[in-house]
Design a protein around this nucleic acid. Structure first.
Lengths: 192, 192
DNA sequence: ACCTGAACACCGTTCAAGT
DNA sequence: ACCTGAACACCGTTCAAGT
């Protein structure tokens, strides 16, 4: 990779981060290229698709997220580990508006530039789920696909400005559907 | 309304139904006008926005849905009434791909042509929720906004082709988060 | 190697001109 | 009243021409 290309690459990413922060995942590629003072064709050469651009935008965040999952797998109690990681996921989705919808659409399409990222998230969450199920805190009648679905659906929902204020509560509702027999959910344990 | 206008109106709706069935809520307005053998400006005159077109497309279905809610409010047990109506909602969302996302985005925007429809769904579901909460089958720490959010999120999720096959199960997961102490959920009741 | 302007086929919006 | 073609400002894709 030539020096000028390398410079363009990182500069485009910097500008893209700004534009996407403003306009979400359906930001105009043309707009990004203009703000980066670069030909549209140049942007498309570095990132052939919108998904390729987003993959580059979120990959470091996702790496941190999957690494977090690895740590949680040996540390805390399985149920709390799943809940904690789920919360981090929601925080991640809120950092780039619309990205969760892209990932949910891409997660079964091997041709998508986001496919590998989705698979990584999927397997990380599936492992945490299995541990919690083995412990008995997560309901047994769901699998990794269901969890990925619920995580995506919640991320999509709180992406909407009108639901963002209730994000914490909606997270709690979904979490208590997944984690049963959790101390914080079980009212009877606290009586007397 | 003149005779030719009336004819165009209904003809456009017929064609729009076809095109939307094929391409979902982001179908091209131009495409619809072409397939209806009508000028694009004519389509836009009858339905100034995409949301206005969709409002016309779904209004009869939504009327039936809210009427169903009225019936359920006096008939079955409150918990089962809510679950039954929720299921009908999911079936509705699956009939027009992408429409649930439009409604979720429009439900706090009074300027949207879909606002009234969203409000009707919202209030219908809120009433069913209140009844179930009074009975003690629905969890007390959620309100109509939360329910509308969860209903939208599930509708959005099963709109994705990859999650459609698991629609029933995902519905069950969400439902059991809302309805607690339900006979079908309570395993202990069936022992012995 | 890498960049770019330009042509292309789309999209929704708007409006003056038609019947 | 109602319809329409055309102009407009966008969009992403593609590629021949430049350095």
């Amino acid at each position: 990779m030539r020096a000028d290309a390398k410079k363009n690459h990182s500069h485009i990413l910097t500008v893209a981060r700004e534009v996407v922060t403003e306009h979400g995942s359906d930001a105009s590629m043309r707009d990004i290229s203009r703000r980066a003072d670069v030909g549209l064709a140049t942007l498309l050469r570095h990132f052939p698709t919108r998904e390729a651009l987003f993959e580059a935008l979120v990959c470091t965040d996702l790496d941190a997220l999957t690494q977090k999952a690895d740590e949680l797998e040996t540390a805390t109690s399985p149920g709390e580990a799943l809940a904690s990681w789920f919360r981090d996921w929601v925080t991640f989705t809120q950092s780039y508006r619309g990205v969760v919808a892209m990932m949910a659409a891409a997660h079964t399409n091997p041709d998508s530039a986001l496919y590998a990222s989705c698979a990584a998230v999927h397997s990380a969450s599936a492992r945490l789920l299995l541990r919690a199920q083995a412990e008995g805190t997560a309901r047994a009648d769901m699998n990794g696909d269901d969890l990925f679905g619920l995580m995506s659906a919640l991320g999509w929902l709180v992406d909407l400005p009108s639901f963002a204020p209730r994000a914490d509560h909606l997270f709690h509702l979904i979490t208590s559907a997944i984690l049963t027999n959790r101390p914080s959910n079980d009212v009877k344990k606290t009586r007397r």
